[in-house]
Design a protein around this nucleic acid. Structure first.
Lengths: 186, 186
DNA sequence: CCGTATTTGTTAGTGCCCTAATGATTAGGG
DNA sequence: CCCTAATCATTAGGGCACTAACAAATACGG
């Protein structure tokens, strides 16, 4: 079927099952060694997230939306009149990135930017009247997908996974704070 | 400092610590409820991956590289003469995406595309001579970062996390195979 | 009160990711 | 043999993410 064997040296724990092309892990190490486990976790963390996001984008495309656009709509419903700076922080994206997403949603007529009466620098984000039922429908759909995706993970396992992720983030942040010495090769 | 309190309704489990703006979780539910746990896991799965990737991009920028570019270089070293189709599958990205990355690396003189002598459609990807020491240095740096990031996660926990991620992917794939019924709202 | 610093949102430019469509080449069936 | 189907790489175009630089407005210190 796929990958006719040409130049297929090295790693990859691909079995016989067709997983849509997500089997390969670039491992030069024993997959059961600590080093191989760490490599695998990095790989599958990113790959699992990307697959999940792709599923959402696929389902939302029928409603003319995408995952980032949907997140804006969800926040705009939860906090009517939210400012762009606040929104960007909550979504953990930069200001310019948010501007593009808002431009697209405004062009669709889903949101509108209103001037803040107290501070003329600020703009309030509001859902339009037409957006209401669409946001409601997407909300239920997204929740159903999330429930199904995590159906095989118990509550205790969810807490444990969250704890592991938090430990990883702590280390990542510690490294980001460090200067990061340059490599010794011009 | 940040988020002066204007229109700060709804969720967010932001504490007093400055975490760089990654604290907000869009929760309309009790964070300790199963629903809130599922929402949190989805959020932190994506956020943790993005933070880790950003750290790598930041450290690799000094070498004129990025995370995706580095992954190409790693594969090209492991499988000399790998084809673009094979490479795209192993990286789990699309063909056109890979073409752009290869264009950038070729412009840097890090890789070169050679014609396959047996099949004139195919092109072999090879590292250039100058790339060798750079790839070696980056390899060690990336491995060191990965080891540090996962320092607080035991081997048993790594296996457990990999198992949970695999269960999630199984469900995601099952949903992607389904037709995905359209929402009932024009 | 005035000049400077900060905040808000924008544009410009780069990179990565996708789908759809195209050209070139190879493989296969009648 | 020839015509069609499949495969490999590319181009075209859209969306999301970033940094850098900027205009407008507000806040603040002297």
């Amino acid at each position: 079927m796929r990958g006719s064997g040409r130049k297929t040296a090295g790693g990859g724990n691909a079995g016989a099952t067709d997983d849509g092309g997500y089997a390969f892990v670039p491992q030069t190490y024993d997959p059961d060694s600590p080093e191989g486990l760490r490599l695998s976790l990095h790989w599958w963390l990113g790959t699992t997230d990307r697959m999940w996001r792709r599923l959402l984008d696929e389902r939302l495309r029928g409603q003319g939306q995408t995952h980032p656009r949907w997140r804006v709509l969800a926040w705009a419903r939860l906090v009517p009149g939210i400012t762009q700076t606040d929104l960007a922080q909550r979504m953990a994206i930069s200001g310019p990135t948010l501007v593009r997403i808002l431009d697209g949603l405004a062009a669709q007529g889903m949101i509108e930017r209103r001037d803040d009466p107290h501070d003329r620098r600020v703009k309030e984000i509001h859902l339009t009247a037409e957006a209401g039922p669409i946001v409601q429908a997407i909300s239920e759909q997204v929740r159903a997908i999330r429930t199904t995706v995590l159906e095989d993970v118990s509550e205790a396992e969810l807490r444990f996974a969250l704890d592991i992720l938090a430990r990883i983030r702590t280390r990542v942040q510690a490294l980001r704070s460090e200067p990061g010495e340059p490599l010794p090769l011009g």
